[in-house]
């Protein structure tokens, strides 16, 4: 699953709902797996399928007009449970980027640890992107990580987004935190020697 991320130009799926919590992204009853694979099948399970497992026609992921590698969602995306399965399911479904005007902390960290890029834009730009994508499903967005910009390709309108410098380096180079932490073993052991003991 772990790769790297530099830039992406793609169409997007609009989901103009606020406070989308991780129980909607992947309901708890699908957290029984012991591997990281296959969670995309149950992404937004109860919004996508009815109790009999039939696709709900009115949900955007079942609307053939919309597809792409970018999910554009309302404010406070990913709130609630810390389940990393939420990031896994979005990534496994095929999204590489989630755009919102606000992300919950834990989700943002989980996404970055799985090379799923959370791009936080202003509320105004989010509404502009949502309107453009809803009106024309062929609308493309360009995300450039090195320059930290997101551009609405058809109008050229662009906004910069914030990302922690360390995580940016990890994403661009395909590095991961464990390698980095293991390289600090000596420092960690000397910290333990002088730390308050519990």
């Amino acid at each position: 699953m772990k790769k790297e991320f530099k830039e992406l130009t793609a169409t997007a799926v609009p989901l103009p709902i606020e406070n989308i919590d991780t129980d909607q992204i992947i309901p708890a009853r699908f957290l029984k797996a012991t591997s990281r694979e296959g969670f995309g099948d149950n992404l937004f399970r109860d919004w996508r399928f009815d109790a009999q497992g039939n696709p709900k026609a009115d949900f955007i992921l079942n609307d053939n007009r919309y597809s792409g590698k970018i999910l554009v969602a309302g404010r406070n995306f990913g709130c609630g449970s810390s389940r990393e399965h939420a990031a896994w399911s979005i990534h496994d479904f095929g999204f590489k980027v989630v755009v919102s005007s606000f992300f919950a902390d834990i989700f943002k960290g989980n996404a970055l640890n799985n090379f799923l890029l959370p791009v936080q834009v202003s509320e105004e730009f989010l509404q502009e992107i949502l309107a453009a994508v809803i009106a024309n499903p062929a609308t493309e967005l360009k995300i450039d990580l090195p320059s930290q910009t997101i551009t609405l390709v058809e109008t050229g309108k662009s906004e910069s987004f914030a990302i922690d410098g360390y995580k940016k380096m990890c994403l661009i180079n395909g590095f991961d935190d464990i390698d980095f932490l293991l390289s600090l073993k000596d420092k960690i052991e000397s910290y333990e020697q002088q730390a308050v003991k519990f």
């Binding site: 990281r36 810390s82 389940r83 990031a87 989980n110 935190d177 464990i178 932490l181 600090l184 960690i188």
Partner: peptide, 19 residues
């Protein structure tokens, strides 16, 4: 609370990278 990747980090190093 932390995600599973971070669970693995703490298992491996007893540490987390945090702002």
């Amino acid at each position: 609370g932390i995600g599973t990747s971070q669970v693995a980090m703490v298992m491996a190093s007893q540490c987390l990278l945090q702002q």
